[in-house]
């Protein structure tokens, strides 16, 4: 029994599991940003439908947020500044989860606008999905150390 728990602990804290999560979350965010970048007007409608941010900031968020997702996704996949990128994605996922929770609690019948504007009305499953992604981000934050480009700096320093 002890061996099982030790094995579980080893697997759950593995840097390779964190790497897999990192690539997955990075890919998800890159994919999610594509549609939003191309259809900014629709994304601004999605943001507005949450009824959480003042109306003057909606367009600005619709323009900037997809690019932040894309940049963080790329940084996460390449392993450059992955800690900061994970933190940024974690913050975004927390905001998304809170927004979805508010909408569900206020019973606002909207799609989540996570990937495209034409989506099923969001539900508690949508929130669960975001929470799982948030948990993955937390795992990446604490256990990720494999295949990071900027960890090559010590080798570079030795060469210099």
């Amino acid at each position: 029994m002890m061996q099982f728990w030790e094995l579980m602990k080893k697997v759950l804290t593995s840097k390779y599991l964190a790497l897999a999560f990192r690539l997955y979350i990075g890919g998800i965010f890159i994919y999610a940003s594509m549609n939003k970048i191309n259809y900014t007007a629709e994304f601004s409608e999605s943001i507005a439908s949450y009824q959480l941010v003042p109306y003057w900031s909606v367009n600005l968020l619709a323009i900037v947020m997809p690019w932040a997702e894309l940049i963080c996704g790329i940084l996460l996949i390449t392993g450059i500044r992955s800690k900061s990128a994970t933190a940024a994605l974690g913050i975004m996922l927390t905001i998304f989860s809170v927004a979805i929770s508010f909408s569900l609690l206020r019973d606002i019948p909207i799609g989540c606008g996570c990937f495209s504007s034409v989506e099923e009305t969001m539900s508690w499953t949508t929130l669960l999905r975001d929470v799982v992604w948030l948990a993955m981000s937390v795992h990446i934050y604490f256990f990720d150390s494999a295949l990071q480009l900027d960890r090559g700096f010590p080798i570079l320093l030795k060469d210099i």
Binding site: W67, I71, C72, R81, K83, S84, A88, S145, Q148, D150
Partner: peptide, 17 residues
Amino acid sequence: HVGRVNLLDLGLICLLA
């Protein structure tokens, strides 16, 4: 900077975005 969150990085990500 590697291996820890840097406010400058977050600022740069926001600025670049």
